[in-house]
Amino acid sequence: MIQSMTGYGKTVLQISTKKITIELKSLNSKNLDLNVRIPPYYREKELDIRKKLATTLVRGKVDFSIFIENNEGEASSKINEIVVKEYMNQLKTIVDSNEIELLKMAIRLPDSLKTEREELDENEWEQIENSINETIHKINKYRIDEGVSMQTDFNLRISLIEELLEKVIEIDPKRIAHVKEKIQKSIAELETKIDESRFEQELIYYIEKLDITEEKVRLKNHLDYFKKELQKTTSNGKKLGFITQEIGREINTIGSKSNFADMQKLVVQMKDELEKIKEQNLNIL
């Protein structure tokens, strides 16, 4: 079953005084383009997160974020009392001011505030890791659901190309007759004698050059192959892309050989449906 590279997953976790939000988004990309944003005290787990995401999401432009909200509003920075008092003592020797003014000046000076680094709690991380797994599950479900819709559209487009191919097969004898008639009419307009035997040989040679039997067979095989790939349990957008290229090659060859307006119209319609498939296929995992 095919999967889309587009997906979204979000999980909110409440731990003690913390509200932790884990968010995962993905868009289409030729390879895995991974962007991870996490708080500094989880940095030691970043490599594990990247490995997990690379293994489960495989391909796409992926943004992973962990947001922390302290419910009690605890400040991450605290006043460095020793440094501030030392600044105030020094300021007293050079300015004549009261304690409040000295404090205002001291608090603006370097190292007046200190940031306490929160250490990683392994029990807390275990809960976060479970939430990460849940978020990955959500984005994968999103991708699968998107894939189901895209598969329905692919089957519709392939069916339309098959119908157009049947019409090409149906009018092909008429096309050959039209080409023969056109050549014979051009010869007649020259009002000159020709070797009928030689003319017939040249005509057969020319008609053989316009023969599209092989292209019709190969195109039908490629369309069947595409449909079989859609039914497989694994999603392989790159392989579907290769098959799409082969389908396009056969359609183009039929168009270049057609030399018949009715058939060229059908070829244009096939190309239109194929372009829609190509555009959709860019988003397949």
Rank of each mutant, 00 (worst) to 15 (best):
I2A: 02
Q3K: 14
V12P: 07
L13Y: 11
L13W: 08
Q14H: 14
Q14A: 10
S16Y: 07
S16E: 13
K30R: 15
D33T: 08
R37Y: 06
I38R: 01
Y42D: 07
Y42P: 04
R43D: 09
R43I: 02
E46W: 14
E46Y: 14
L47R: 09
I49S: 07
I49Q: 04
I49W: 02
R50F: 04
K52Y: 08
K52S: 07
K52T: 03
T55R: 13
T55Y: 12
T56L: 15
L57E: 02
V58I: 15
G60P: 10
F64R: 04
I66C: 06
E69A: 05
E69W: 05
N70D: 15
E72Q: 14
E74G: 05
A75Y: 08
S76H: 13
V84K: 10
K85N: 14
Y87K: 09
N89H: 12
Q90W: 02
I94E: 04
E99H: 08
D111S: 14
S112A: 09
L113K: 01
K114T: 15
T115H: 07
R117G: 07
E118K: 01
E118Q: 03
E119I: 07
D121I: 03
E122F: 12
E124N: 12
Q127E: 14
Q127T: 01
I128R: 02
S131A: 15
R143I: 06
D145I: 05
G147A: 09
G147E: 07
G147F: 11
M150D: 04
S159E: 07
I161D: 02
E162P: 01
E163H: 06
L164P: 00
L165T: 03
E166C: 04
V168Y: 00
I169P: 00
E170Q: 09
D172W: 09
R175D: 01
I176F: 02
A177G: 13
S186I: 10
L190F: 05
T192E: 15
K193G: 12
E200M: 12
I204L: 11
I204N: 13
Y205D: 00
Y205I: 09
Y206I: 11
L210V: 00
I212P: 00
T213E: 10
E215V: 05
D224S: 06
K227D: 04
K228G: 04
K228V: 13
K228E: 13
E229F: 11
K232P: 00
K232E: 09
K232S: 09
N236E: 08
L240V: 08
G241L: 03
Q245K: 10
R249Q: 05
E250I: 03
E250S: 02
N259Q: 15
F260M: 00
F260V: 00
Q264F: 02
Q264L: 05
Q269C: 01
K276T: 13
K278A: 00
N281V: 06
L282E: 12
N283W: 07
I284K: 00
